[in-house]
Amino acid sequence: MTSDSQIIDRLVARLLPTAPAAPPADRLVPDWAPPTPFERPPVPAAVLIGLVKRPEGHTVLYTERSPDLRAHSGQVAFPGGKIDALDEGVAAAALREANEEVGMVPAEARILGFMPTYYTGTNYLITPVVAEVTPSGPFVPNPGEVHSVFEVPLQRILDADAYVRFRVKRGGEELTSWQIDHDGHKIWGITANLTRQFRELALNEAYSA
């Protein structure tokens, strides 16, 4: 089995060293096609794929969104959100969101690199920021945004058997994504797709949508 430290070294070599530029609008293909075309440019957003250093090995940080939120309530997500005008780049936005959502101290995260942008059927252009996190204390969910925080062992994320297909109907069309079940949590949709892309980048495998 490849060690976590070897995976981290491999990721550093394969991740983008700087945040990718937004693709031209005519080349953007959403993960599912909305019934009507968007009338505005995509919303830039960032998520943090946090690799948390634990005595037993690295874990991947996830949140369960508050059931009171209007959008994606109760779903599992990476810490993240819209990039604000005051953010000093994509990484700063991801770290700010992680601090606001779960109290992660930005100085305790070491940015490893960036994954390619991910365009959603809700018109968000997401840049995943990958970081190694050495927390000095527990993560504490912000009750206004996050219901709970949990971590999945990195080795489970790298295991192909952890992934199954999730199917959902939207606008009369059946859509599929990856799904990961862990300790009572169901990771699916955008978050599972990004997790799968992260896995295949870490293992140098071609992504299978």
Rank of each mutant, 00 (worst) to 15 (best):
V152F: 10
V130D: 01
V29D: 01
G74A: 11
T134A: 14
I49T: 10
L48K: 09
R40N: 12
Y118G: 03
M1L: 04
E108S: 15
P44Q: 06
A33Y: 09
V168D: 15
T63S: 05
R54Y: 10
A22D: 13
V60D: 00
G103A: 09
E200W: 06
D161L: 11
A94K: 05
S73E: 10
V90F: 10
T36A: 15
T176P: 03
E132Y: 05
Y62W: 06
P128C: 08
M115D: 03
A25Q: 10
G184N: 05
R156F: 08
K53R: 15
W178P: 01
V129A: 06
E101I: 03
W178E: 04
M115A: 06
H72R: 14
G137M: 14
L61D: 01
A91K: 11
P55M: 12
A162W: 08
P135C: 05
R70C: 06
L48T: 05
G121V: 03
G89M: 02
I111V: 14
P23L: 00
P116V: 08
A162F: 05
R40S: 14
S208K: 14
F114L: 06
L175E: 12
G57L: 03
G189M: 00
L203N: 10
A131W: 00
L15N: 04
T122R: 06
R54V: 02
M104Q: 07
G172F: 10
Y207M: 04
M1C: 02
I111S: 04
H185V: 04
G103W: 13
S177T: 15
L95G: 04
I126A: 01
A160L: 08
H58F: 13
Q155H: 12
P143Y: 07
W32R: 15
P30E: 02
P20A: 08
T63H: 07
H58G: 01
P34T: 08
A71L: 14
F198D: 00
S66K: 11
I187V: 13
P30D: 06
G121R: 07
P35T: 08
F150L: 12
G171M: 13
R110Q: 12
L95H: 06
G89L: 03
I111W: 00
S148Y: 11
T122D: 10
T2F: 05
S148F: 09
L51G: 02
L158R: 09
G172D: 11
P34V: 11
V146Y: 09
P42W: 07
